[in-house]
């Protein structure tokens, strides 16, 4: 009975993981711009890996009776949990810095241009959370540029 329950849990996790993974791929293909694709792909990457990994750990422990495989699968999960969101974060930040402008649902740009995108990437998160004050961000960065110039 308990064996059947464990199996059922593992299969359910596996199916959920497959749904995650495939929906992430569909998002990657169908979403309109880079940032929405990134959103879909990175979330389902991490989530799908987590869920499928848990299913595989359960299988390794209770069906294959191979605890080494379970430990290795756990390590894979741990590393993916750290590296995959970090890579997505770095990718979004670099894309913004290099001037990729996010688009809204109709395909209109949400920012004035590449310059403003890279300004956003270089400002503190708190600054664009409070109303996206372009002027203030620009002033700040100008001040930092000047300081850097003075030091050298």
């Amino acid at each position: 009975m308990i064996d059947l329950l464990i199996l059922l849990v593992s299969w359910a996790l596996m199916i959920v993981g497959c749904v995650f993974v495939v929906s992430g791929a569909v998002a990657l293909v169908r979403m309109p711009d880079l940032y929405t694709r990134l959103h879909g792909a990175s979330l389902t990457d991490t989530g799908g890996t987590l869920v499928i990994g848990l299913a595989l750990i359960i299988q390794a422990l209770f069906v294959f009776d191979n605890s080494m495989a379970a430990v290795k699968m756990g390590l894979i999960l741990l590393f993916t949990l750290f590296t995959s969101p970090t890579a997505s974060h770095a990718l979004a930040k670099t894309a913004l810095l290099c001037g990729q402008v996010p688009l809204d649902a109709k395909g209109n740009p949400l920012l004035d241009g590449p310059e403003q995108a890279s300004l956003l990437a270089r400002s503190r998160p708190a600054d664009y959370r409070h109303g996206q004050d372009k002027e203030r961000i620009a002033q700040q960065i100008q001040a930092l540029d000047n300081r850097g110039g003075d030091e050298s």
């Binding site: 791929a25 990657l28 880079l34 792909a41 990175s42 990457d45 990718l91 290099c98």
Partner: peptide, 9 residues
């Protein structure tokens, strides 16, 4: 960036 995102995924 799209390519890189896809390859990472």
């Amino acid at each position: 960036f799209d390519r890189l995102l896809a390859v990472n995924s």
